[in-house]
Design a protein around this nucleic acid. Structure first.
Lengths: 311, 311
DNA sequence: CAGGCTTATGCTCACGGGAAGCATAATAGG
DNA sequence: CCTATTATGCTTCCCGTGAGCATAAGCCTG
């Protein structure tokens, strides 16, 4: 690993995208293969950079520019036989934010609610019944089945922290850890345990795409706490309640309304459009727009949302 | 980017490591080429995974295990001619934490203070003279030289935020943004501007290695605020002042002593070894060791250091 | 048209954590 | 014994956050 170009291995590179949109009801993700895979494809020599290849492709499908793109993680697949010899694939995953628009027909692309794949991540209506009824007991059983007391204790501790059991607080950023625990415990179909084994609710995906999606969820949930990225998902004008609903949909938790407004107001993230909207049957709400100026003012500094910092 | 294995491009993959150690005086980084480059090398087919290749190599040189390894960023180099055809190199950079130990002779590896490359990042003694005397004026001139008022304003704003000018607070996590500004403004040798142009102080590195190092610094400075990673850099037993000095060396700022201790104590990150040490000429200090148990207890949860969260 | 329902907004209060500083203890060196 | 230096305990002020109370302003129903 010192001298420059020694016997380098022949490799292929693949880009995988977690493209997120959102409405008040739920975050949405762009999928292919009838909802069973994330959009992905080879990194080609024509691409100027990793990111530009990804951008061009996604924008073509969604007909909307990706407002925000961020690298998630890079990993090397296990060896795969190609033709006669060995070749490894390096997969580079990205998180992108967009506005939902009809997908181009014939591409197999479609938008899906992300809680379809992770029902246990949605705590807006309180703890989902499936956690207490199935996931928690199954994970406890798995923890108890470990060899040796220290392994058992460690597993039990990880489960408690990740799922907020035993008086631990729920931390919405741990979506990846939760998926990994379920995988290790053989509670998701992707783990390929003996057929017939009971699995946690939630639609599976091909390969490790659900794992990548969990990574994207975790990253986005962490990011909205200190960067004004939610607005990439909002329409040009919106009410404060709509904004709150979208944040809640992403975070999977409910927020205190007055405090949410106070925080948004104090940071001057939005400005009034001047118009009002009355479509909810209640008092009409003012419409706001994102203050684009904050992107410059705080290009690198932060913002805050009323979600407790990750413990 | 839909169908699996279309015309994939032939690629090479390279691993680049930012390996950090630290003492009370300054953080140290592992370099090669007489301090002019970061250790790097091809990703070989023998490696089980990206990370394991990196680990093995570094541990061989430093004779110490890497306690903590984290991926930084992946990027694709511009096309490079290899033999007759085109080949692109994908570079995957990593941050690793280690304890400093003599490097194996003959490898060209050596440890260097990281402030040697980034003198402007060290504010432990207050704002370095070079910022006010040279960097700030040069960046202001660069901002004013932009075409168009909005570009000028944007540049001035970026400079002010990154370097804490105009009553902005200094944010130690912005080391990458600071380096990028200096690069854009042609104030570092790597930018390859017309020779003879005045440059900011600080030793340059080959290729884009100083940029990668800046990325590693930013990541580490952010990380120590919510994960107990500092202890990877500490000897088995240490005084609280030593711990504080190391944190200060990494963050490049001074901390309030009493508050630092209170925070460490409250989180139960350390436990007394029982012995004392008197080598400073003052009252003898108690020796502490890291409570390894917190790695399990808070495998995914956090810790806090008395560094203001990134605004 | 009154009353009820729903959503929007303003304001208060208590609590906890963080920033800064005061005060005291314990050692080495002249 | 006095001074310099470092260790440690405690207090005080301030501000952000969490949680609610109260009121405004529409729509809908009987």
């Amino acid at each position: 690993m010192t001298g420059g170009e020694a016997e380098t291995t022949t490799l292929a590179a693949e880009l995988i995208a977690v493209v997120v949109a959102a409405n008040e009801a739920a975050p949405r993700i762009l999928t292919v293969e009838d909802g069973r895979a994330l959009p992905s494809g080879p990194f080609e020599s024509g691409h100027r950079s990793l990111q530009s290849g990804l951008r061009a492709w996604v924008e073509e499908r969604t007909r909307h520019p990706l407002g925000f793109v961020e690298q998630l993680y890079t990993f090397a697949d296990r060896d795969r036989m190609v033709g006669g010899g060995r070749r490894r694939t390096i997969s580079i995953s990205y998180l992108g934010l967009a506005r939902e628009a009809p997908t181009a027909p014939g591409t197999g692309a479609s938008w899906q609610d992300w809680y379809r794949y992770f029902p246990w991540e949605d705590r807006r209506e309180g703890e989902p019944a499936a956690i207490r009824a199935m996931i928690a007991p199954a994970l406890s059983a798995w923890a108890k089945s470990g060899d040796g007391g220290s392994l058992r204790r460690e597993r039990a501790e990880r489960v408690a922290i990740a799922f907020g059991l035993n008086s631990q607080a729920w931390n919405e950023e741990l979506s990846l850890q939760r998926y990994e625990l379920l995988y290790e415990a053989g509670l998701v179909p992707e783990a390929g345990e003996a057929a017939g084994r009971a699995c946690a609710p939630g639609a599976p995906m091909l390969h490790d795409h659900r794992r990548i999606l969990a990574t994207g969820i975790a990253r986005l949930r962490a990011k909205i706490k200190y960067r004004p990225v939610v607005f990439e998902l909002m329409p040009p004008a919106f009410t404060l309640l709509t904004l709150q609903r979208v944040v809640e949909a992403l975070a999977g938790v409910q927020l205190h309304k007055q405090n949410f407004r106070r925080l948004i107001a104090r940071q001057e993230l939005v400005e009034e459009t001047g118009s009002m909207i009355a479509e909810t049957g209640g008092r009409p709400a003012r419409l706001f727009r994102f203050r684009r100026a904050v992107l410059r003012e705080r290009a690198v500094a932060g913002t805050k949302l009323p979600l407790a910092p990750a413990r």
